[in-house]
Design a protein around this nucleic acid. Structure first.
Lengths: 191, 191
DNA sequence: TAAGTATTAGCACTTGGTACTAATACCAAT
DNA sequence: ATTGGTATTAGTACCAAGTGCTAATACTTA
């Protein structure tokens, strides 16, 4: 037994906070108690039911969501895209993206923006990064607006592979360049 | 009547895109048709039901908020480190790190773990990634535990530069390799 | 007028719950 | 041991917002 209702309820709070998408049934199993117990716990703690929790999360986002991500799964905001040709995204660097010590953006955020864009520009159901070479040319600071451009290379090295050149700039200064070799399911030069 | 199914369906798409929180019943009323008609329309257009739509919005948020790339100093947990020599971290891949479509981890999470580790292993106040070449050798799935090892190359190419080789494995299978060229303020071969 | 599409109706069933009642278990104190 | 109080479990009826299916009706148009 997990000992004392109290402990269980504490755990319940944390579990749900951590993942609001969990059902009573899953919780019951996880804690080795009945579904009813979970329900009672939720009532005592006034934790709403799954659907309400989800709705909360959804509507919370929804307020600032409309502009944030028209296209799924992208770091940064895509502002222009021509599938299989080029794409452009912007990413505003915040305090949370930089090293406290020196205020310089962590490389992986720039990489993430570039990688996301490379995935997005490919007109395919499945695109995966196979290899990539990148250079962090100049430091990027909090407050900078990084404009990233991905250009699909026309000639293909081999079937199912596409090379994408990515360049990121801040105020027209190049801060990052990268070459991404992507795998795709469909060929990628016809259709 | 709103004329032609087609027009109604177009409107339906827009209405739902604009506000995913609307029920079939509300839509039916708004368009002056029956609930069944709305359902048929949704099916033809493959628009999911209210709850699914909300869940989508919610999880989209959830990803952007919590997981896109956590602010944390290090992506993954460092379990062993010898400064300027080697470091080891583990990273448990969750549903939130993968493409919904195919369950494969997004490249930038693996990159982030590797990059973080490369930064961490350097015994310096300031370490920045200058260049990096990486290869995503095998797909990583949700539930996988990625063990990443960073090894500092002994010979230096030039002053203030250090090369780090990073290898990530899942169950001893290599899934990712990378070479990171790091900038550091202090020399880097003494002390 | 007959065929074909579009629309509506109705019913059984599903998920993940609420609300409520009743039974049982457990632990302690008198 | 009996009583009491809390904790837990079980079971029922019900709800929202659907899916899936069948069948009937309406609208159009050749």
């Amino acid at each position: 037994m997990k000992r004392t209702k109290k402990e269980r309820q504490q755990l319940l709070i944390e579990t749900i906070a951590d993942n609001p998408f969990v059902t009573d049934e899953q919780l019951a199993q996880q804690f080795g108690v009945s579904v009813q117990t979970i329900r009672l716990d939720r009532m005592e703690l006034s934790i709403p039911e799954l659907r309400e929790r989800i709705k909360d999360v959804a509507s919370k986002n929804y307020e600032n969501e409309v502009k944030s991500l028209p296209i799924d799964e992208v770091i940064g905001e895509i502002i222009d895209i021509e599938l299989d040709k080029r794409a452009l995204s912007i990413f505003d660097v915040g305090e949370e993206h930089v090293f406290q010590r020196n205020g310089i953006a962590r490389g992986h955020h720039l990489f993430a923006q570039a990688n996301s864009l490379a995935v997005a520009v490919i007109d395919d159901e499945l695109a995966l990064t196979v290899k990539s070479s990148v250079a962090f040319v100049k430091p990027v600071k909090a407050g900078d607006r990084v404009v990233t451009k991905a250009v699909v290379r026309t000639q293909q090295t081999e079937k199912n592979r596409t090379i994408i050149d990515v360049t990121s700039t801040v105020n027209n200064d190049i801060v990052f360049t990268g070459e991404f070799e992507m795998y795709r399911t469909k060929g990628g030069n016809e259709t």
